[in-house]
């Protein structure tokens, strides 16, 4: 039991770092700004979440664990605000999204 939790934490950490990489690849591959935004949100949700969970499993119920939770909450509340502000500013500045089918809106 004492061995298993840190091991699981390590796995979560690796998976999270992997998702961060995937998100960064998406940042490079996606065709326009609005689609890149979706790739970035993979980093901010699954990537960050898994990494923080992994560290949490290694830290256990300590002060450090509580701080990790704080960081998680911060990302949870702040990152969508920043993303939304960014998308809205882009639209207001007249940056048109590339759409799959131009006729719908």
């Amino acid at each position: 039991m004492n061995e298993i939790l840190p091991f699981l934490g390590g796995l979560g950490l690796l998976a999270g770092a992997g998702f961060c990489l995937v998100g960064a690849v998406g940042l490079l591959r996606m065709p326009d700004f609005y689609t890149r935004m979706h790739a970035a949100s993979v980093i901010e949700t699954l990537g960050a979440g898994l990494i923080l969970c992994g560290l949490l499993l290694q830290a256990g119920f300590t002060l450090v664990g509580a701080k990790l939770l704080m960081i998680g909450l911060l990302i949870f509340f702040a990152s969508p605000t920043a993303s939304h502000a960014l998308a809205r500013a882009a639209l207001l500045r007249g940056l048109k999204p590339k759409l799959a089918s131009p006729e719908d809106k």
Partner: peptide, 26 residues
């Protein structure tokens, strides 16, 4: 929900054909 859709998006990113169809919905 977040985990489900994040998984879906990462699959699309890694797919060599990049199967996306960006849409605006109101």
């Amino acid at each position: 929900e977040i985990v489900k859709s994040a998984w879906d998006v990462s699959r699309r990113i890694l797919d060599p054909r990049l199967p996306i169809a960006p849409t605006l919905a109101e």
